[in-house]
Design a protein around this nucleic acid. Sequence first.
RNA 1: UGACCUAUGGUGUAAUGGUAGCACUCCGGUUUUUGGUAUCGUCAGUCAAGGUUCGAGUCCUUGUAGGUCAACCA
Length: 559
Amino acid sequence: MEEEKKSLNFLEQIIEEDLANGLPQEKLRFRFPPEPNGYLHIGHAASICLNFGLGLRYNAPVNLRFDDTNPAKEEQEYVDSIKHDVKWLGFEWDKELYSSDYFQQLFDWAVQLIKEGKAYVDNQSSEEMAKQKGTPTELGTNSPNRDRPIEENLALFLQMKNGEFEEGSHVLRAKIDMKHVNMHMRDPIMYRILKKHHHRTGNDWCIYPMYDWTHGESDYIEQISHSICTLEFKSHRDLYDWYVDQVYDTSNLRPKQREFARRNLSYTVMSKRKLLQLVEEGLVSGWDDPRMPTISGLRRRGYTPASIRNFSDTAGISKRDNVTDVALLEHCIKDDLNKTAPRVMAVLDPVKVIITNYPKGEEEFLDANYNDYAEGFGSRAVPFSREIYIEKEDFREEANKKFFRLKLGKEVRLKNAYIIKAESCVKDENGEVTEIHCTYDPNSLSGSGTEASKRKVKGTLHWVSVKHAINAEVRVYDRLFTDEAPDGHKDKDFKDFINPNSLTIIDAFVEPSLKNSKNLDRFQFQRLGYFCVDKDTTSTKLVFNRTVPLRDSWAKMDN
RNA sequence: UGACCUAUGGUGUAAUGGUAGCACUCCGGUUUUUGGUAUCGUCAGUCAAGGUUCGAGUCCUUGUAGGUCAACCA
């Protein structure tokens, strides 16, 4: 059989081209370079799947490199969560590295640049420097310190390093071109003074390298062949190349930066700043709130690593701005869970059914498959008795032919149990149905093989036995925002679109087999959706998150 | 009054000058002891105008639209 040719994305095409032009395959090396200043989200997952996917595809190593050059924002907590998330997604990095590992090397190279007359110390205020920088349409002007003698620069830079200056008083700048059409080339800052404790280097340094100076050189040190980042860094590429060229030795590989469009998802926001805002203002319970688009939020919500990987592959990558429909993500998790989740029964909005011809005090345990349509899931015993709960919406006193559920005088099948017929109902003073009285057909037990058990009845309902049901808190989620692109409105704040009903907490009844479920166990609650055990679960209280509801074509018809 | 990037069904992505395809969404049929799943199908697209070419989504020109760039952030 001929293997189907899979089309390449534009980055794979670039790599193929490089290989065709003589780059040896064993020189291929990638990296995922997060700044440890927040939690990873589904957009990062795109980058992770992309870089590690390339590693797998080309049998090339992929480094996990923490871009930790700003001690003001970075914390060990974030490092730990990032490592956990990458592992959880199912990827293995070659080396765990930190930009801060290269502080000494970067410093030495900076000294070299000063000696070559390619860098200088500027002691103007940031306002003055900003003014000289110009704008995208106006050229910049030179700093009065631009031609400071090399010896003086060297001495000042050393003083900066030794902590002899205040924060903000001096910077080291690359001497490139203040009239360059690219703003990033107008004598960019290489080092600033920051008298802050660093999560790894402690107080060893009080000058810290800027992103641009750090990133290309780190790629070069690690001999990354393809340094893949998002589109907003496109204009940094000139500078990336300039910096690398200052230290590039032709016997080594010269890394190449290429950019792709970041992944956006409909009905949510993706910037770390905005996500942080949601957390800090208490609009969600934390970074791992199941409504958050973070990896930890999705995990807690019940998403599987495979579903997220599959989403990334399916969505693909390109260079155009995009807002991917969250329906695709939901499709991916439903697709995975449909194949892997055991099916059980839970009633979220209960009404009591009394089976009047079932003997009082009697109970029986019915064998129920965890999955009727696939092998290997096994089964459990589900208790049945005279009183059960069904969903309120599964009963109507009267309804037309399209209503396949329980109505007076009609029959339905109870999943894994008997066929019952509604005879009458009891209502409270508000007209709400409080009890439904039914009779059952004792010969109709599921799987018993009797004539009666094979009767075709149109509806099948899920249920739990009143006596055996266990209580569970079920958290039902809706999208966090009511707008498709909450941060896409110039005149409105993204928080104006917060959905006030994004979380509904329900006291539900679940079948007793669920009693000992553990955190992150995933189930299909039949006819309702996929649910996942939440970490708030204790030995006395079960808590479930609804990952995603099942498709409900009846709800659409009924409206 | 700049430079750079991007424009393919509602959404996301292929087509590497040669039949515009795939997935999601929507809608409909079949199957079904989940109104689920599965399966079959329908609707729907190359931003515009010129040019090159036997042939253009692809190359060129000019528009138009969107995005990015002026942190001692990354």
